[in-house]
Amino acid sequence: MPSAPDLYRQAFRLMLSARLVEDKLTALKRSGKIFGGVFSGRGQEALSVALGIHLHKGDIYAPLIRDQAGRLAFGDTILNTFRTYLGSALGSMRGHDGNVHRGRPREGYFAMISHLGAMVSAVGGALMARRFRGETGIVGATCIGDGGTSTGSFHEGLNMAAVEKLPLVVVVANNQYAYSTPNDRQFACESLFDRAIGYGVTGHRVSGIILADCLDVIGKAVAAARAGEGPQFVVADLLRLVGHAEHDDAQYITEAQKASPLGRDCLVLAEETLLRENRATPEEIALWKKQIDEEIEETTARVLREPAPDPEEESWIPFATDYLHPCFADS
C-alpha cells in the first residue's frame, strides 16, 4: 500500500482515467459505435476508487454500474472496458454480455447481473468458500445505489453476511436518485446509515465527494473487515452528475441540488486539493491527462479493428459440462 500522499495521487489518476474513459464512451455512443447503454459514474469516482484501491489481489470485488474508477483500481483495464462496450470478441465477456456487465470471476472480479442486490450474497458465497478453505485476511466488497437497498435481494444478502460474520464491505452510493426516483420515494428512514444497526453490522458514513474522506473511511472499513470484524456498511452521500444512462438528460435533478455542496464534482475537488497541498503540479496533471487520452485513443482505434463475435463459431450450448454437449447438439 503506498503512503497516504502517493495513495491520493494514485487514486486521483484513476478517477481521471475513469472520467476520461467515460467521456470517450459517451462520444462513441453518440456517434453510434456502441451497442447498448453507456452508464457513467460521473460524480462518483472518489467513492468508487476508494473501494477499489483498498482491495488486494485475491480479494473479491463486485462493482456496480457507476464503478469505472473502482474497476480500474482493482485491475480492470481501459482495453477491456472498450472491448466490452464496443463488443469485441477479445474482451472478457466476448460479446456475450456488455458495458458494465463485465468481470473476470476467476480473478475475484465478479460480473454483475442487472438485478440489483443480487451480487451481495454472491460475494458472501465467495467469502464462505474462502472460509471453508481456511483462508483469512480476505475481503469481499460490493457497491450499490440508494435504490438497490430497497430490494429483497440486498436485504437477504446483507443479513446473511451478518449472520455468517463475513468480511464483507457493502458501499452504498446514495446519489439521491434511483433513475428518476428521489430518496423520499425510495425509503422512509432518516438515513440509510441507520440500517446498519438493524442488520447488526458496523456502519460508516462519509461524504462521497471528498476523496480524502472516502479513502480514509473506506480504508478503515476494508481494514476492519480484513481483521475479522464482520460486515462493514458504508453509506456515502453524493449526487449523480449525469443521467441514469446516456439517454437520460436527468431533468428531475433539481437546480438547488446541483448548486448545493452535494452537487460539487469530486474530481474537481480532488484536483484542487492536489494543487493546494502541493501534492502535484499543474504540469503533472496535464501530463497525466495527455497520457490517459493517448491510451484511450490508441485503445479505441485498436478495439474498433478487432473482430466481433462470430455466430457461426458459437457452440450455442450454455453448459460447462463437456459430456452433456451432445445432448444439446440440436438445441
Binding site: S121, G125, A126, M128, E156, V163
Partner: peptide
C-alpha cells in the same frame, strides 16, 4: 461446519451458492 442452516432467504441461499461455486466449491 459443512451442513449449515440458512436464514429464510431463498435469494441469498442461491446467491451464496453461486459465489461459492465460482470459487470452486460444490454447494
Amino acid at each position: 461446519g459443512r451442513v449449515l442452516d440458512s436464514p429464510i432467504s431463498e435469494d441469498a441461499m442461491v446467491g451464496m451458492a453461486i459465489g461459492a461455486a465460482i470459487e470452486g466449491m460444490r454447494p
